[in-house]
């Protein structure tokens, strides 16, 4: 059936026509949302006290803020393009496309770098550590410095305990450390950290990206602590933290970008 001529006139070229005013208004609204999510919302979130009591919810909020912030920025750029160059859609989407590709390429580069570093680290571990006599996926590093860490990477995740740590901690404290690391591995905290690290490296001139990264890193530690606290008393976890962290070992985790969330990890054990 042929299209009636009157419909073709209302929709020239078959395209949907949105009034120019609506595009401008939409662009302004999206900029407002993007700016709110880029500055006041994350700063408020980083100063709030509730995240240390509810790290799971806080992490969800941070992910939502990061995702919505990025998408609203892309949308705002696209609509601004259409508002400025309404007749040329290919020209109009360039700013949004460039920003999207920029963010995605940083994510890709970060993934490649982290994967390469992990592979090298695992190669070194193969040479320098021995399998734990009883625990699966756990290796013992023959070094006097007390350290415990995990390399989460899907099926090949490994937890590493140094001999110095095993010598220093009692059985309960070791349970706390292992439960903490197991939470990191099982909940794939590395993926979350990777995303925020990539965002931070993509936007080095944007202090909120560093703030978000520091907050998420601290919240992930609290979440892992909560798993340890299900298995041991707070005092045991505190003892383990003191044994490992206050032993005069270098490598202070400097509070980045005005986030004081690192200290909250300890305060919440007391209150």
């Amino acid at each position: 059936m042929p299209v009636p001529p009157i419909a073709a006139a209302a929709v020239p070229g078959g395209a949907l026509v949105i009034p120019h005013g609506a595009i401008v208004w939409g662009a302004a609204m999206l900029w407002l949302v993007a700016l709110m999510l880029a500055w006041p919302v994350p700063v408020w979130l980083s100063r709030a006290a509730w995240p240390m009591r509810a790290p799971v919810i806080a992490l969800l909020v941070w992910q939502a803020v990061g995702l919505a912030g990025g998408l609203s920025m892309i949308g705002a750029l696209a609509l601004t393009g259409f508002a400025i160059a309404p007749g040329r859609p290919w020209l109009a989407v360039i700013p949004a496309a460039v920003f999207t590709i920029y963010l995605l390429s940083h994510l890709a580069v970060t993934i490649v770098q982290v994967t390469a570093q992990r592979r090298r680290h695992l190669q070194l571990l193969d040479m320098l550590s021995s399998p734990h006599p009883t625990r699966a996926r756990t290796r013992v590093l023959d070094d006097a410095v007390p350290v415990a860490y995990c390399l989460p990477r899907g099926a090949g995740s490994v937890t590493v305990l140094s001999q110095g740590l095993l010598d220093r901690l009692d059985a309960d404290e070791l349970v706390a450390v292992i439960a903490h690391e197991r939470a990191h591995v099982e909940q794939r905290h590395d993926l979350l950290l990777l995303a925020f690290r990539a965002w931070r490296s993509a936007l080095p001139w944007f202090p909120v990206a560093a703030l978000a990264d520091a907050e998420v890193a601290a919240l992930v530690e609290m979440l892992a602590d909560d798993h340890a606290r299900r298995e041991v008393r707070d005092e045991v976890l505190a003892r383990a933290i003191l044994q490992v962290g206050a032993s005069g070992v270098p490598g202070a985790e400097v509070d980045a970008a005005g986030s004081s969330r690192g200290s909250d990890r300890f305060k919440r054990l007391v209150t």
């Binding site: 970060t110 770098q113 982290v114 570093q117 992990r118 680290h121 350290v147 415990a148 860490y149 995990c150 390399l151 989460p152 450390v177 903490h180 690391e181 990191h184 905290h189 590395d190 950290l193 990777l194 690290r197 992930v220 530690e221 892992a224 505190a238 383990a240 933290i241 003191l242 490992v244 962290g245 206050a246 070992v249 270098p250 490598g251 202070a252 985790e253 690192g262 200290s263 300890f266 305060k267 054990l269 007391v270």
Partner: peptide, 21 residues
């Protein structure tokens, strides 16, 4: 980079005091 996740880094003197308390 987010290569590995440590149990705890170096604890500041203030934080250590909080834990000892």
């Amino acid at each position: 980079m987010a290569v590995l996740e440590r149990f705890v880094g170096s604890v500041s003197e203030e934080d250590a005091a909080v834990l000892r308390k």
